[in-house]
Design a protein around this nucleic acid. Sequence first.
DNA 1: CCTTGACGTGGAACGCGTTCCACACTTTAA
DNA 2: TTAAAGTGTGGAACGCGTTCCACGTCAAGG
Lengths: 311, 311
Amino acid sequence: MNIHDIAKISGYSSSTVSRVINNRNYVSDKARQDIQKVIKDFDYVPNDVARDLSKGKTHNIGVVLPHTKHPYYTQLVEGIMSAAFPAGYRIVMLPSKFDADVEMNYLNRLRRKAYDAIIFTSHGISLKELLKYQKYGSIVICHNPGELNIAAAYTHREESYIDAYKWIKSQNYQRISILLSRDYQISATAQKTIQAYRKTFGSEPDHRLLNTDVTTFDDGYNAAAQFHHNQYEPDIYFTNGDDIAAGVRQFYLDNDLKLPMLVGQENQLSGRILNIPTINHHFHEVGKLACELAINNEIKQLSVESEFILR
Amino acid sequence: MNIHDIAKISGYSSSTVSRVINNRNYVSDKARQDIQKVIKDFDYVPNDVARDLSKGKTHNIGVVLPHTKHPYYTQLVEGIMSAAFPAGYRIVMLPSKFDADVEMNYLNRLRRKAYDAIIFTSHGISLKELLKYQKYGSIVICHNPGELNIAAAYTHREESYIDAYKWIKSQNYQRISILLSRDYQISATAQKTIQAYRKTFGSEPDHRLLNTDVTTFDDGYNAAAQFHHNQYEPDIYFTNGDDIAAGVRQFYLDNDLKLPMLVGQENQLSGRILNIPTINHHFHEVGKLACELAINNEIKQLSVESEFILR
DNA sequence: CCTTGACGTGGAACGCGTTCCACACTTTAA
DNA sequence: TTAAAGTGTGGAACGCGTTCCACGTCAAGG
């Protein structure tokens, strides 16, 4: 049962049926009623895929996420949804694990018109590669793209990182551990963390206390355990998330050791419960902005100030 | 640039081009090479929407979620994704806020072939209504559908609830508060909570200590504040999530009151940090099972045992 | 009385890939 | 030697809604 069947049965053309379905003008009352009756009698509904094909628009936005457990992505996705839903867009989750092949595959699906736009909450492939695909649809990333002309919504982290480090400095902590989620050679965000350190302290961070790939409570726990094992322990941990800081704390607690100072990020519940200073990056807002850029196909950069919260 | 253009340029028919694109047999080496060269030269990629239309399949699974902040849904979505991705399916997020109109809209989109299947992580409309739509595609729900013949993956909660109540009984707690996420008149899950109480204690729960619509840390906090204000306080809270229990705890802490006993659910990080007994519902597994049912279009019920964890 | 324009409707092409069927030719088995 | 089976390829319809264009009618403005 398709629109042409309805046309035949009702005795009108498919153009007129289409007008009725889409509530458009230039249809007489009689035709409208006749056609609506047939539609009802035969319990007809139009096919969305055919409509998408002929309109050349799917109202789908692909959202590429390296992993899902991490609250960064959860918050972003919520923000994206909050903007997508009212605008009649749906979001399609695209897990990537930073795998370049998988990401390229998603980009190609943008070319293939499976999505109207694609948002990279984070990405493994290079920005130059992304640029090449802009002609196929709107592409938005969630970090500062620097000079490159690509749509982006991101948190302006520098200030808050420097605020945090300044506070650390003022408290006279000596051994500062930095737990990063990704290698600072790869990740722009991790780089910012290090840069802010240099700016504030005028020196390099202590590499013996610098860890990468620390993203969860357990990772934090293990990092602390490792430092303890090496008998070279920090008196403060600057971590990439409150949950991670909570994991560090747990290690000290489990082993009856004096708790070090902790700094988290992302304003997670764990930080609130444990009173850990944090940095609120307003990811919900970032997601919302990213989605708006995607929908409006605007190539511009929007940033949100993040803030150090000392509890 | 479409498949017919490639056919014309290469001098073959679109059937042959299609065979080449889909790596099928019955194509000579020469034809394959010629066509592949044209495809490459003109940088052609097929249109996924057209393919979906002609195949009658989208490889999209809609996932209806009342809200996103709640970890129940997050864990389910992760589980769903873990099954969808390897099978070549993508998931489309469909926020509903339990709004029946919105849910009906999503069901209609199933009819309209926008999704191959739809998973309701929770739902406001009746099961009878859902049953009507089964003929349009696979529908899976995430709670026990009882006698109804509808695909479902869910946690078998009774045992663990009873285990929890038995423990509460054994500890001689007198005033038991139950904080539900939804009214037990509406929600099957909430009903189970009450039923297990009746079974264990042989009596009705104290309605003065029973609250509904408690889903977040702050809700827990406020519920505790309210009981305190009413000067009728529980000595134990049975809550719908560790985060909620953490919120309750926070109220007592902030007001320098003696902490009541707490029981959480969902095995969240907050419970782990604060050592709150919890119930692990294995939602990740449930999501995975639900997705498998959706993909295979099987109408059967699968359940996972949940377990009371006393820390 | 004629022109202009809004209104109502249909035809046919378009968006684009898939697939069934027919046809020709080449092997292989009998 | 011949029928049967396999290989290679094209034509055309199909999946289904949208939209441009043409054509006819009728009323309002000049």
